[in-house]
Design a protein around this nucleic acid. Structure first.
Length: 659
RNA sequence: GCGCCCAUAGCUCAGCUGGAUAGAGCAACGGACUUCUAAUCCGUAGGUCGUAGGUUCGAAUCCUACUGGGCGUACCA
């Protein structure tokens, strides 16, 4: 049930006698901000009056005169400059509630077009620990997949793993020089992670060591620049003061960031050199970064030993990330990583050349594009292929394999330029019969407003983040004072199960509650807090519905029968408001699809849970005065429970029967 | 330098293609527990929507300039 569309259809019919742009005007229907204006309002009379040169209130009257809507709404009212206010008939709402009972889809119609939508999300580099940066793509992508699938689309989710890059050169090198085959065989996942960290730290050390001189130079330069800018500012005339001050501020920032970079490099170097074990390692592997690149190149060339190691290690690396996906309850239809496309890359470059799109430049193969300063490089000087090449090969494969109408890339917004280029090339490359969308998202920030890091400056591991949320959830959920009132008592297993569902749900929900394009501050305390705009509030509302049904000893089938016997009628405004919210479920999902913005559904669930709480406070079910009132309330309790549960499930979040 | 994004209540954030008095939560203050779980509800207070112009019957929303912040910017992904 998409009320807004239904009303639009009626308005279209009425408007067609006044204008040939009835569609445009019919779209100007929206929910009212203030209930005293009714439930929906149509704002089309004002602009239309301009087009046809009449008084807006008269236009509104004309629209209403030919509007066939009496089966849905009370008589429309004209207000203010020409707003048409619509109030749904209670009868109509009640009939819809009756229809929703027993309807598993909670009144949401399924699209019947056989369109497929490919969603590319998560895409971590295997062999590297997953960190906080992977949350958003995974959680947003999974929520989109669930919602679009529920709306009736054929969804193909694909985890485009980074399984063919330098990180394998790193663990291959690590295995050859630091690994003990027996230890690795016994505990591959942990050992490989350890080898990765050792080699990576040595590479970072080399890089830092090499960069220090240049960084010192750039600090000195920045200091000079600042002095110069300050001097210029002192000398500047009145009219130039502002620009001069700006130059000083900019020079200060440059100095600050150069100093910061230098400090970070010095720290990395000291960390290695002050520790004899690490210092020895560093001394014994002076050209480790080159060697790692060479191991990677050998793998790509098909070197038997390295390919063998890659085949041996890859399953363990996948086990490692799959453990995280299991815990997050995320699944993929396809996991076609970079390695899958490896032997197609040469073909892509050839095809680009043949099409006259790519040409050599400074030894690399580039596609030059209008409106872009830098070209898209598809093959490096040394012959290696890049991210862009793989993405083109992947796009080509997906078009052949899935024939999608849309492909969504759930990827950090910092990569938007890459996608702008990719889509531009795709357009010229015969890959244009599909809607390509970069579903971009912002950065997860720490409480200081800067990208989230641990105290030592490394990224925070994803699993420790999840553990933290579950721990905190457990503290609150399993507060002995609260638990005391539960009958039967909660055993340890139930407590842990609830903590897991609430804790993981809190992380997902708070991520999804922000508009995807904005950065947000990660605050564990707030997101797991059991009050406010949190998943726990919604989950708690669900638990309340279950308790009432349990006490009433009614299943939904029984409620349907009661409703059939006594009918539905509202006796309190909270009932009507809640019923109306339940009818808007589909609208929230359609809005979500429109912008690929899960926060639309989050907002809806919070508002519905609030409507339920209010209802719960004001409308006692078991003590209802008449059978009709009780049947109405039980129906609302049933449906609220199902909508909240389904809505959370579409966000990838679970519920518990009591908490 | 060029390009993209952001600026809304003390704090964290919503605000759909322009609509009526800009919303929610947290924090603050005042109320409501013989309860279908008070993890709740009701009320109060809190805003020149960064600044200045423009378009419009009507602007947080669209356009321009400015201020302040973030990110990206030829062989990483």
């Amino acid at each position: 049930m998409h009320l807004q569309n239904l009303l639009q259809q009626r308005f279209r019919d009425s408007l067609s006698s006044l204008t040939d742009r009835a569609d445009v005007y019919a779209e100007m229907i929206r929910p009212t901000a203030d209930p005293k204006h009714g439930d929906y309002q149509c704002n089309c009379a004002m602009p239309l009056s301009k087009e046809i040169g009449k008084n807006p209130r008269d236009v509104a009257a004309e629209i209403i005169a030919s509007l066939a809507i009496e089966d849905i709404c009370e008589t429309p009212e004209i207000a203010g400059p020409g707003f048409i206010n619509l109030k749904l008939k209670d009868e109509f709402i009640c009939r819809q509630i009756e229809r929703f009972l027993g309807d598993e889809r909670c009144g949401v119609e399924a699209v019947d077009q056989g369109k497929s939508i490919v969603i590319d999300f998560s895409s971590p580099n295997v062999a590297k620990p997953m960190h906080v940066g992977h949350i958003r793509s995974t959680v947003i992508g999974d929520a989109l997949a669930r919602c679009l699938r529920f709306l009736g689309y054929q969804v193909e989710t694909d985890n485009h793993l980074g399984d063919w890059g330098t990180q394998f050169g790193i663990i291959i090198y690590g295995y050859k020089h630091f690994g003990d085959p027996q230890v690795v065989d016994a505990n591959p996942v942990q050992e490989l992670a350890k080898l990765y960290r050792i080699v990576n730290q040595l590479i970072e050390y080399r890089k830092a060591k090499r960069s220090i001189e240049a960084l010192e130079h750039s600090v000195a330069e920045a200091e000079g620049g600042l002095a110069q800018a300050e001097h210029a500012s002192d000398e500047a005339e009145e009219s130039k003061q502002k620009a001069a001050r700006k130059a000083v501020a900019s020079a200060e920032r440059r100095l600050q960031s150069a100093a910061e970079a230098l400090r970070s490099s010095v720290e990395k170097v000291e960390a290695v050199e002050s520790d004899s074990l690490w210092a020895d390692r560093a001394a014994m592997h002076p050209d480790i970064d080159q060697a790692v690149l060479e191991e990677t190149a050998k793998l790509h060339r098909g070197d038997a030993e390295n390919l063998g190691l890659w085949e041996k290690f890859l399953p363990h690396c996948k086990d490692e990330i799959n453990r995280v996906y299991d815990r997050l309850d995320v699944e993929f239809d396809h996991t076609l990583g970079e390695s899958f496309y490896h032997d197609r890359l040469g073909g892509v470059v050839d095809k680009l050349r043949d099409a006259g799109l790519a040409k050599d430049s400074d030894g690399a193969v580039c596609v030059f594009l209008e409106n872009f300063d830098a070209p898209m490089i598809v093959q490096k000087q040394d012959g290696a292929y890049l991210y862009a090449t793989t993405d083109l090969a992947t796009l080509q494969y997906r078009l052949e394999q899935f024939e999608p109408s849309e492909i969504l890339y759930v990827v950090d917004t910092r990569q938007s330029e890459h996608f702008d280029k990719l889509f531009a090339v795709a357009d010229q490359f015969g890959l244009e019969n599909v809607k390509l969308v970069h579903v971009n998202f912002g950065t997860v920030l720490g409480e200081d407003g800067k990208p989230m890091k641990t105290r030592s400056g490394s990224l925070i591991g994803l699993e420790s983040l999840l553990d933290g949320a579950v721990d905190r959830a457990k503290q609150v959920v399993c507060d002995p004072e609260r638990l005391a009132s539960f009958d039967p008592p909660m055993d340890q297993a139930e407590q842990e199960m609830i903590a897991e569902v609430v804790g993981i749900g809190a992380i997902k929900f708070s991520d999804l509650s922000h508009h995807r394009t904005s950065d947000y501050r990660f605050n564990l305390e707030k997101m797991v807090a059991l009050e406010g705009n949190t998943s726990a509030y919604v989950q708690y509302s669900f638990a309340r519905t279950q308790k009432i049904l349990e006490n009433a000893q009614k299943a939904e089938g029984d409620v349907s029968e009661m409703v059939a016997d006594s009918g539905i009628a509202f006796s309190h405004p909270a009932e009507r408001h809640l019923a109306l919210m339940l009818m808007k479920f589909e609208e929230s999902l359609v809005a979500l699809h429109k912008d690929y913005a899960p926060n639309q559904l989050v907002d809806y669930l919070l508002e519905t849970a609030r409507a339920y709480s209010k209802f719960n406070e004001n409308c006692h079910v078991l003590r209802a005065e008449t059978p009709q009132i009780q049947a109405t309330r039980l129906a609302l309790v049933c449906l609220s429970g199902r909508v909240l549960q389904l809505g959370l499930r579409l966000l990838g979040i679970g519920v518990v029967p009591r908490m």
